[in-house]
């Protein structure tokens, strides 16, 4: 699974720490998500999408 977190975070001028605090996870989780090394739970995906004001499908997508 891939995502647009890095791009959307840059657009909103948010640091990884700030996004982590907003969705209630550790900064390492955001780092792993951006690298595509972690598939989030539905709740975390929902919370991240909510921060960006988008739907889950607009933030997370399958490769290929």
């Amino acid at each position: 699974m891939n995502n647009r977190i890095r791009e959307l975070r840059a657009r909103m001028d948010l640091t990884q720490d700030e996004l982590a605090r907003k969705v209630g996870v550790r900064r390492e989780t955001i780092v792993f998500l951006e690298k595509g090394k972690y598939n989030p739970s539905l709740k975390l995906a929902w919370d991240i999408a909510l921060v960006f004001g988008l739907t889950i499908e607009e933030v997370f997508f399958r490769e290929g």
Binding site: D17, A20, R21, G24, V25, R26, R27, E28, T29, F32, Y38, P40, S41, L44
Partner: peptide
Amino acid sequence: RSMNLGQPVEDEMS
């Protein structure tokens, strides 16, 4: 360090 940054010490990934 996580606690000082206002983040949880444990989250779903850890």
